[in-house]
Every structure is written in C-alpha cells, then in structure tokens.
Amino acid sequence: MANIRDVANHAGVSVSSVSNVLNGRTNQMRPETLARIRQSMHDLNYLPNRVAQQLKTGQARMIGLLVPSIVNPSFAMLTREVDRAAKANQYRVLLGNTYRQEDEEKAFLEDMFAHGVKGVIVVATAMDRPHFANAARHGMVMVNYDSLMSAHAPDGNPPFDSVSMDNVEAGRLAAEHLIERGCRQLVFVTEATQLTSRLHKIEGFFSAVKRHGLQDSAHVIEGKAEVAYGDAEMTELGRSLAAKVLQQSPRPDGIVAINDAMGIGLMAGLRSAGIRIPQDMSVIGIDNIPLADLVQPPMSSVMPPLADMVNMMVDRLLTRIENPDLTPEEFLFVPKLISRQSVIENEEP
C-alpha cells in the first residue's frame, strides 16, 4: 500500500507538500503542483491515514452538527447547506439527531470529543443547559443556530457564537402580508411548547396586528405534539389543527403557521374540510422549504437567508477553532417575504 513518501516521490515534490494538500494548506501552492500531487494520489490509490493525522494534530477535519430532527424539512435543508459549506472547506460533517433531549445532546458531545471534533453547530435548542457550557470549558467551539444567547449569559458574554434569523421580523412580515391583502381575522398557529424562536415569531405577529389596530381580532392557536417539541410531527399537527381553526368564531381569514411544514399540513386539513385557499382562508408559512412551492396552491412564506447564515456559522466555527481567544458574537439575519398563491390578492382598503 502506498504511503505519503511514495506519493511525494511519484509527484516529484517534498513530503511536506503532500502533507499540505492533505491538511488543506494549498493557498500558496502552484495549481500545477497541486494537480500533480492529486494525480499521484489517484495513480497510487493512496488513502491517507486519518487516525494518524488526528493523533498528530489532536483534531479531525470534521465539524459536528446537532439538529432536533432530520425529519423536519427545515432542519434537513439546513443540514444540506452545512454539508455544502463544510465540504467547501475540506471538512466532513458528523450529524447528531437529538430531539432536543439532554441525554442525547450529552452523548453526542462526548462522541464529538472522542472523534477529535473541535467545533459543533448546535441547532435550535436551550444553550443554557450545563453540558454545553461544560463542553466549551473543555475546548469545544460551538455556534448556536436559531436561539439568541444574550438572555442566558449573566455577564453578557456567552461562550458560543449565535446565528439566527430575525424571528420577530419574520412573524411581523407574515402578518403584514396578510393584512395588506385584506385579511382581518388573523390567527398564528403553532406547537404549544414555548421556544425562544417561536415566541419571537409570535411577538412579531402581534406587533403587526397592533400597528393596524387588529389586536382584538388576532390570537394564537396551539396544538401539543405527541413527542417532545413536535419537530418530527409538524405536518401532521398542522393537519389536525385545521379543525381547531374552523371552530373559531368569527372564522379566521388569514393564518400564519409557525413553519412551512405546519402550514402545508394545515392547508391539507382545511382543503379536506371544503375550505378554498386562498378564497376562503389565506395561509403563509415561515422557512421557505422547497415543498412550499410545490403544494397547491403554492404557499407564501418568509425566507431566511440560509446560505449566508450557514456560511457565517462554518466560517466562525473554523476561525474560532484556529483562534480560541476570539470573542463570540451574535449575528442576526433579516428574512425576506416570498409571495405565492396561498394568500388572497385583495389589497388593504
């Protein structure tokens, strides 16, 4: 089996040059030299010893990603983007499906340490749990996605970066769109568990209805998931909540769903009850997953700048792995309205 010296001899370069390629240090390398080394690796069927590399550096070229549920389309879309950004930096992604359960989070963090992972993106969970602070104290670099940290840090300096869509603005944009199209009886439909991101979206929803003097005709409809926080059940929960929406009097004419998966399920439940969308009720979601454009009618949504957010997370993770003393920061991204056919065309009088 070929080793690193064989590759160097075949390519006519030094062993250190081959090592630079293996470790992603190619910025100062001539393109023709890089091509020759890679061709030699291919010709010799060279497989680098990743275990030996990890023992030498104390670090694997992997980043961790902890998500509440890969079944949720929003988190699946996020995972795809993280994988893309990691590969662009010659890293792999070690994925943990946690269901926001503390024992699962602890176990995955232990696995990350055991595999030499030095940086983890933690998605939509309570970052004030002790195991995250403990991991940070032991050298794990973390970026928190979709749960702002300042409220949980007594000194105002949390040990993790935070990257989030402006969820207050997302809720506000969704409600404003319904109101601008003439909707006056508004509801916000969500899973009942009070998460920071959900509360912020509801806050934005009510800021819009109050601005238009509609607070007396706007309210929240909640449904309790069977398992944990409902991350894997949003479509089914949305379908079941259609009956609860139809029990309201006066009947709502505009609905904001906590996310697109719930909105899609809600639309299915309403159609089964004979409700025309958007003629009888308008529906808008939040997240802009690909399925939102494929259902009938295509569903309006509020879109986070996901690619930009993921690039920021991966960049901050790798930068702080190299520079552990760099101060963590919070980054808030502005969402964008995507208008489709699930909201009525009537304009506000």
Score class of each variant (00 low, 15 high):
residue 1 M to P: 14
residue 5 R to I: 13
residue 8 A to P: 11
residue 21 V to P: 10
residue 21 V to L: 03
residue 35 A to Y: 05
residue 41 M to F: 09
residue 46 Y to P: 02
residue 49 N to C: 14
residue 55 L to T: 11
residue 55 L to S: 13
residue 62 M to N: 09
residue 62 M to R: 11
residue 69 S to H: 01
residue 73 P to E: 00
residue 78 L to F: 01
residue 82 V to S: 03
residue 86 A to P: 05
residue 91 Y to N: 06
residue 95 L to P: 06
residue 101 Q to T: 07
residue 103 D to W: 04
residue 104 E to M: 14
residue 105 E to T: 06
residue 111 D to K: 10
residue 114 A to I: 10
residue 114 A to W: 11
residue 118 K to N: 13
residue 119 G to Q: 02
residue 120 V to H: 03
residue 123 V to L: 03
residue 125 T to D: 08
residue 125 T to G: 01
residue 129 R to D: 10
residue 130 P to S: 11
residue 131 H to F: 14
residue 133 A to L: 15
residue 141 V to E: 03
residue 143 V to G: 01
residue 145 Y to L: 14
residue 151 A to M: 09
residue 162 S to W: 08
residue 163 V to C: 13
residue 163 V to I: 15
residue 169 E to L: 10
residue 176 E to R: 15
residue 179 I to L: 13
residue 182 G to H: 11
residue 185 Q to Y: 10
residue 207 S to V: 06
residue 223 G to N: 10
residue 229 Y to P: 00
residue 239 R to S: 10
residue 240 S to H: 08
residue 247 Q to G: 06
residue 250 P to C: 13
residue 260 D to V: 01
residue 265 G to N: 09
residue 271 R to D: 05
residue 272 S to I: 08
residue 280 D to V: 02
residue 282 S to D: 05
residue 284 I to K: 05
residue 290 P to R: 00
residue 292 A to R: 00
residue 295 V to A: 01
residue 296 Q to F: 14
residue 296 Q to A: 14
residue 302 V to F: 04
residue 302 V to I: 14
residue 304 P to W: 00
residue 305 P to Y: 13
residue 318 L to D: 02
residue 332 L to H: 05
residue 339 S to T: 15
residue 341 Q to H: 14
residue 343 V to S: 07
residue 347 E to F: 11
residue 348 E to H: 15
